[in-house]
Design a protein around this nucleic acid. Structure first.
Lengths: 210, 210
DNA sequence: GGATGTGAATGTCTTCACAGCT
DNA sequence: AGCTGTGAAGACATTCACATCC
């Protein structure tokens, strides 16, 4: 079950394939070709086949892929065949948007706890969860398992939150703070930086040819 | 001012360089080396120099880069030396989070208008702006210039919003809807899909070695 | 016949290493 | 001496094209 280096771009496409397969639930033909799947996500059929080939053979030559089987295989591959316990630090707008993001909970991510350092927020209800004091985090982690920690605090507080989460044994972090954070090498970090996305658009606009 | 194909990864790093240079405002040495800049954003000095070399020569051999000059050059390169008019469609949680994202307005992005199709939301105040009826969008675009359109609506409404924005002459779209959208080739599209980011973490967690 | 799975070829990005300027 | 700027090498990702199997 441990594969050699898989490109991040490949994993992103696998997620896209899955999301379109889930949209094809119970449609007419029970199979789908790499050609069709490629059209849905905006890539090529060769790319689809190559992506899948890293993990095995899921199709039948001459027929294509069974939608149901490929869907299940992709869920397995992506680790969505189980529930990940998510803990959000920072009960601000980003956290709220996240909790309401369509299909977040339905896809294997369970928001188990929300923490904040602001006394005004601690104890308030927040989408069926009570906001806890971030100082409880380390103790809580001894009883509850948190698989994924979400950093939704201002940049200057990010590293301290990261340190607490790492000390609490959390092995994967989703970082929404616009800050470079450092972690031990066995901790997986993904950073989402809205400013970067918009600056990418700005660059493209500024240099668009004719 | 029109450069040959620049990789998306390069543009992302340019944004990061800029953001760290802005943090180095008025610090001791007035110059910075590619080595130091690389350390700040987590890349290599060769990568920093290569990235910058696509746009010119900004450093002095033996000395490094003038922080102030490089900052200004990067702002120019990224198109942040002007203000982009942003129009958000969908007055939900994502839009709110966006408007409050630290340093969004300060970096050349001005939220000029917010639209929604929900009568309950139209006319309400929303962070100093009044939410407008999405049906006004096409007419409004004749009088106001919208450089960037933000798609913050559910997936099934995304393409129709895109079509309206494109018809209104908007040439750059930031898509937060988990949907594949199609546009004329002169329209720049960036898609941000939270689910994909989390599934990437899930994949990494599921296959982590050791 | 039709579509997969995959080595080989191509294209793209990153790293190396060094000449050249300050 | 120190650090940039850059061609060349290397690593990585995508595309091609075809043998293989249903």
């Amino acid at each position: 079950m441990a594969f050699k280096r898989i490109a991040e771009s490949t994993v992103r496409r696998l997620s896209l394939y899955l999301s379109y397969l889930e949209g094809l639930n119970g449609t007419d033909p029970s199979t789908v070709s790499s050609e069709i799947l490629a059209g849905l996500v905006g890539t090529t059929s060769a790319q689809v086949r190559k992506d899948l080939s890293f993990f095995g053979s899921f199709g039948k030559r001459g027929l294509g892929y069974s939608i149901v089987e490929l869907r299940d295989s992709l869920r397995d591959i992506l680790g969505l065949d189980r529930t990940w316990q998510v803990c959000i630090v920072g009960a601000g707008k980003i956290g709220v948007a996240l909790a309401q993001y369509p299909g977040f909970g339905t896809k294997g991510f369970h928001i188990a706890a929300v923490y904040d350092s602001d006394p005004a927020k601690i104890g308030t209800f927040w989408d069926s969860l009570t906001v806890r004091d971030v100082r409880q985090l380390r103790d809580d982690a001894a009883h509850e398992r948190f698989d994924i920690g979400v950093i939704a605090v201002p940049a200057d507080a990010a590293q301290s939150v990261v340190d607490t989460l790492v000390a609490a044994g959390v092995k994967a972090l989703m970082n929404f703070a616009p800050a470079q954070i450092t972690t031990p090498s066995d901790v997986i970090v993904r950073t989402v930086n809205m400013a970067l996305e918009f600056e990418g658009l700005s660059f493209a606009l500024a240099h668009r040819s004719a």
